[in-house]
């Protein structure tokens, strides 16, 4: 499903420009190298370490590395590819799986929150929306077909 352009990724000439610009202190260039070197047995461990580690989940998706890359390497695509590979091995952070589950059940990724005002008043989402004359949250009625399709797609994505 996730298609990445290998030709463009191989264009990386290891100038390290992406590293200096990463606000999360990651090494986007290392993700590229790990992916490209994984076909050689000597470097397979680097790839495995990255797939199993937490660094791929520490990307803030600020996309600065993509903008700054002199070779137009789609670094966001490679990170998402590695995240997907990790997810297929059951290594995705639980919180994202819950958000997907929520979406399937309620259409929304988030449930009701507590909202604080400047004056220190606490409201639930429902209360403050009503108070401010906003429409209530969508109701998951008659969403069986939606659930069915989402389940099917999630199944495909996990293979």
């Amino acid at each position: 499903m996730l298609e990445i352009s290998l030709e463009t990724i191989r264009a990386c000439y290891t100038c390290f420009k992406c590293i200096g610009v990463c606000p999360a202190g990651l090494r986007p260039n290392l993700f590229v190298k790990a992916y490209l070197s994984s076909i050689f047995k000597e470097f397979r461990d680097v790839y495995e370490e990255i797939i199993g580690g937490s660094s791929i989940w520490s990307c803030a998706r600020c996309l600065k590395c993509v903008e700054i890359c002199p070779q137009k390497v789609p670094l966001n695509d490679i990170i998402e590819y590695l995240q997907h590979e990790a997810a297929k091995r059951g290594l995705a952070p639980k919180i994202y799986l819950n958000m997907a589950e929520n979406t399937m059940n309620t259409y929304l990724a988030f449930t009701s929150q507590t909202i604080v005002s400047k004056d220190g008043d606490f409201y639930t989402t429902e209360d403050i929306r009503e108070l401010l004359g906003l429409a209530p949250l969508p109701e998951p009625i008659g969403n069986e077909k939606f659930k069915e399709i989402l389940n099917m797609l999630r199944g495909l994505d996990s293979k």
Binding site: M1, A87, A92, L97, M99, N102, Y107, A109, L150, D157
Partner: peptide, 24 residues
């Protein structure tokens, strides 16, 4: 026009479930 039949765009889990997010 504020529609009520909205859903999550799938941004948070787009790398984990790419086609699911795209569908959303």
């Amino acid at each position: 026009i504020v529609p009520r039949n909205i859903n999550c765009c799938g941004f948070a889990f787009r790398s984990i479930y790419p086609s699911t997010s795209l569908y959303l």
